[in-house]
Amino acid sequence: MSTEATGSDSAVAPGKAGAAEHRAPSAARESAGLDTEHDIELVLAFLNTCDSETGTELLDDPVGWQQWCLERGLGRAPESTAARKVRDSLRTAVSCGGGPPRSELPADITETPGLPGWPVRVRIQGGVPVLTGTDALGSVLAAAARLVTTGHWDRLKICPAENCLWTFYDRSRNRSRTWCSMRVCGNREKARSWRERRTAT
């Protein structure tokens, strides 16, 4: 899978390079019509096509998976088995990045047997090279790659509540959010810990 790269102008006058480097990626993304919030929303929706709380698995339903892709304007829906392998791989990477891993992450996830590569392409949009997909799954992966290159990927986390496991985006300033919802999963964990402490005493 390719990634999108941006760079700064090496001819910028001394003392102004830092400011130019800070502005350039944002200006380039704007001219290319890229939307980070849309990328976050799309990737989260894909990672949450399995729901532990309700026990539902969208990728077990080829018709539902096709409808999911059409509703988001992603074009052709690839075979759902391949999509599930990619999604589960991404969720493993997110869980390893956001806290203790639930399973061992392979040393090189791209070499995992049975994990498909997926075609993406680079096109010029607004004078800027933009990574895009050739089908629905490629579009999701292109969005995920953009989140990596813009520093947003590490804010994706999976709620540690065993009956939840919902993927969410941590918007806290110091990236300290643990639960998808403190009012629901956080309070459940607090209550469980309190009961365990009372039982132990």
Rank of each mutant, 00 (worst) to 15 (best):
S172M: 12
T178I: 14
T134D: 15
D154N: 11
A145K: 01
P119S: 14
N174S: 09
W179V: 01
A136Y: 11
F168D: 00
T134W: 12
R155H: 05
F168N: 00
F168E: 02
V128N: 10
V128F: 13
K157R: 13
V120L: 13
R175E: 12
G126P: 04
V148M: 11
L141W: 06
W118M: 01
Q125L: 13
I124D: 10
V122W: 10
V120S: 14
R155W: 06
C159N: 07
R171T: 15
F168V: 03
L137V: 00
F168R: 01
A143R: 05
G186A: 08
R155L: 01
W179G: 02
P119E: 04
T150S: 12
D135F: 05
C185Y: 08
A161W: 12
A143K: 11
L147M: 09
D154G: 14
F168W: 04
V128T: 04
T149D: 06
L137T: 00
S139L: 08
V148T: 08
L141H: 01
G186V: 02
T150M: 08
R173D: 14
S176L: 10
L141S: 05
R121Q: 15
R175N: 13
G117R: 15
D170K: 04
A144G: 03
H152T: 09
T167Y: 09
R155I: 06
S172R: 10
R121A: 15
R155K: 09
T167I: 05
C185N: 03
R175H: 12
S176Y: 13
L131Q: 00
